[in-house]
Design a protein around this nucleic acid. Structure first.
Lengths: 249, 249
DNA sequence: CGTTATCTTGACCGTCGTCAAACAGGGTGG
DNA sequence: CCACCCTGTTTGACGACGGTCAAGATAACG
């Protein structure tokens, strides 16, 4: 995975969000960018850090996370290939949460100053990056609704639906079947549940006939039913039109 | 409350977040802006709307909110005087949540196109608006941790601490005593609890000696203890340095 | 093949939700 | 001025969803 591939991925992603000017594309192609591989659960950014770079996930998965005073962990966001990692804190003086790799992951790092210059010089690029920030914020709001107001069954189903649709819209889906990159404990931390209850709830979803599992491989056997149980409607993902098959069905 | 006062408020707010160029300040002063009064629980923006304006709260309170399929409500964010309301969806093609007035509120409306032109022409203004967006996103993340991983007592205490500090940092606090603009039902909807349990938890906080109540008037009698119970530390608010007294004590 | 992380299951328990009724306050209109 | 609402608060009895604790079963991995 080279610098060029990283920047190409960035251009492709940002193009989804705004009509980039030719100059903006050229400026992105000229960005400095270094590649780093991170092992599972390795930290990419820590709470309290001064943000110095903007990262993009090239392969693998990452997540945002925050710890309460007594050590409980809340996973705030899942990031899949193509997602930006630090836009959320680019302009703040200290990072307010942690970012860790979920699986072995390759990330591209672009210095903060370079991103800032890009945004100042090219409103269309600034616009696109802002849209990325806004969409992640929208997803976080849906998660807050999910954790605050849905029961365990709906909550878990919702996370699985969201993950499926997001993967699918990036062309990473295998049509309703995928290897979930989270342990049940991590699922619990994302959902405000315990791993024990996640386990029971997964079995309940199986019993309802919405999915089958082998190890962490999930395949949906009743997508409509899953959406119904999850109370899932993907408007909050702000996907580029007709991008996803799953949205319609 | 005139257009000029509204724009002055905007300049003051944005100056907290970025060094505005003189040209940017002039451009802001030239923005078109209309004032609207909204009655309690009146809608300011609805889910599905195409965003057409960026609003700023001039007086009173507002909140973001989202409904689940079975009608449960989750309050996502509280907005106090000086806060922007629509930055969160400015660049998206549809709004993904509702915004309602909590009390009678005056809001200033600036057309989306004017804000967009401002941001394109003045990077420092764009920067400041982005910071506002990022801070609200940071607060939403803390709420997700709060709802997902803290028990009712800590959760409620946390919301009260946050509200106090934010009010204080805008110079709207009355030193640890204020009229809470939320009903217990609304508190429950913000915390993922029922109004009945909010009531019991408020009494528990009184019993712990951290606050006294008369009607909705709250006065802290043990601020340190409140912070301890709430597991509250205000870094996530990204306040301009030393702005708040409460942060230190 | 041993070691460790993850998953699975059961028994039990507690926090918080549900339902329902009584109570307080504030406005309105007779 | 008082009856009447309407909204919001308070309280109690009870139940359930999900947490805790603990042990055993699998799977991953060096």
């Amino acid at each position: 995975m080279s610098r060029e591939q990283c920047l190409e991925m960035l251009v492709r992603k940002l193009s989804d969000y705004a009509e980039l000017s030719e100059a903006a594309v050229a400026a992105i192609d000229a960005l400095p960018c270094t590649i780093r591989t991170v092992e599972p659960s390795g930290y990419i950014v820590r709470e309290g850090d001064v943000p110095t770079a903007c990262a993009i996930v090239l392969s693998g998965f990452a997540f945002r996370q925050k710890l309460s005073g007594d050590g409980a962990r809340q996973i705030l966001s899942l990031r899949i290939p193509g997602d930006l990692l630090d836009a959320q804190t680019l302009f703040l003086s200290a990072v307010d949460h942690n970012v860790q790799a979920l699986t072995r992951a390759k990330i591209g790092l672009i210095p903060r100053s370079a991103i800032q210059q890009l945004m100042d010089a090219h409103p269309s690029a600034a616009h696109a990056i802002t849209v990325d920030i806004l969409i992640e914020a929208s997803i976080t709001r849906e998660w807050l609704l999910n954790v605050g107001r849905r029961n365990a069954l709906a909550r878990l189903a919702h996370l699985l639906c969201e993950f499926t649709v997001r993967m699918d819209s990036r062309g990473l889906g295998v049509d309703g079947a995928y290897e979930l990159p989270l342990t049940q404990e991590q699922l619990g931390d994302a959902l405000g549940l315990t791993s024990v209850h996640v386990n029971r709830t997964l079995k309940a979803l199986e019993a309802e006939g919405v999915l089958k599992r082998q190890g962490r491989r999930i395949s949906f056997t009743g997508w409509r039913e899953a959406r119904r149980i999850a109370d899932f409607s993907p408007a909050y993902l702000h996907l580029p039109d007709t991008r996803s098959e799953m949205v319609k069905s």
